[in-house]
């Protein structure tokens, strides 16, 4: 079982592009498909994966205690209340950054891989020690980026580093896509991004206000089975990770149909 565990780093370089949101939503979506999934918050300095999953108040022990061997792994793991297939290993306190080494990270991940089918590692922003620790423990990676020049540039840098660390395969998720802005050429198009990054596109996530609402509530969108655009995108990504063939959405068709116009109307004006 440990051999087949997929250890996936979710990283971006730039902050605020949606790493943690993607980690939380993919974690839930994978768990809903029945695979045992662990999400590991490797962002020790600024942890908030627990917030997004709504598990902040259940944390007793963290990765720090596990490493110090003052508790067992299963004591530190926080099971999600509605999705028992999903567990969170919370980040310890920010002071861990001073002593945490790649070896420690590898130890945690190898412990997790004995129990889970998927280990998703929420990588900190930047390319410094926190990133290096997280990379050292990962087998494959998902790079998240937005259709913005600065996010793409940072993603490119990160992909270069992933290659030198031998992380393979690396796939791309393009987050916060606004079809209308792409159509009016105010935003980088999908092709512009994949042209530079030259990675297989695992999925697009459409810009969606529901994401902000769900983040603040601590209930990832994929949890409620919501039919909002972003929720569908996240679920599709999780299914593709599981090997299902699902075509990518076409942003040029998205948001022009009557159905989606109606949906947008429902989600914005009414209620």
């Amino acid at each position: 079982m440990a051999i087949n565990t997929r250890i996936i780093l979710i990283c971006s370089g730039k902050g605020g592009v949606g790493k943690t949101t993607l980690t939380a939503n993919l974690g839930i979506a994978l768990a809903r498909q029945g695979v045992k999934t662990a999400v590991l918050d490797a962002d020790f300095g600024l942890r908030n994966l627990d917030l997004l999953l709504g598990l902040e108040n259940r944390i007793v022990y963290t990765a720090q205690e596990v490493l110090e061997e003052s508790c067992r792994l299963d004591q530190a793991l926080v099971k999600h209340k509605q999705e028992p297939n999903l567990s969170l290993l919370p980040a310890g306190n920010p002071r861990m950054l001073e002593w945490l080494k790649p070896d420690d990270m590898q130890r945690i991940v190898s412990m997790l891989s004995e129990q889970f089918d998927y280990v998703l590692i929420d990588c900190p922003a930047g390319v410094e020690d926190g990133f290096k620790n997280a990379v050292s423990a990962s087998k494959e990676a998902i790079v998240v980026t937005n259709p913005e020049v600065s996010a793409v540039r940072d993603a490119d840098r990160v992909i270069g580093l992933l290659n030198t660390h031998g992380v393979k395969p690396v796939q791309l998720v393009l987050n916060r896509v606004r079809p209308q802005m792409i159509a009016s050429q105010e935003m980088l198009s999908i092709d512009d991004v994949t042209d530079i990054l030259a990675l297989p596109l695992l999925g697009l996530v459409l810009e969606d206000e529901q994401v902000i609402i769900s983040t603040n509530r601590g209930e990832p969108l994929t949890l409620s089975g919501s039919n909002s655009p972003a929720a569908r995108c996240y679920t599709n990504i999780a299914r593709r990770m599981q090997g299902e063939e699902i075509p990518l959405i076409d942003p040029s068709k998205e948001g022009s149909g009557v159905g989606s116009k109606l949906r947008r109307l429902m989600q914005t004006k009414i209620f």
């Binding site: 540039r153 940072d154 490119d156 840098r157 992909i159 270069g160 290659n163 030259a198």
Partner: peptide, 19 residues
């Protein structure tokens, strides 16, 4: 491909197969 932040240096001519 040379990605952002990478720098390839050569003393003589350089031929890159990639972007």
């Amino acid at each position: 491909t040379l990605r952002s932040g990478e720098h390839l240096e050569a003393e003589g001519d350089v031929l890159l197969l990639g972007d």
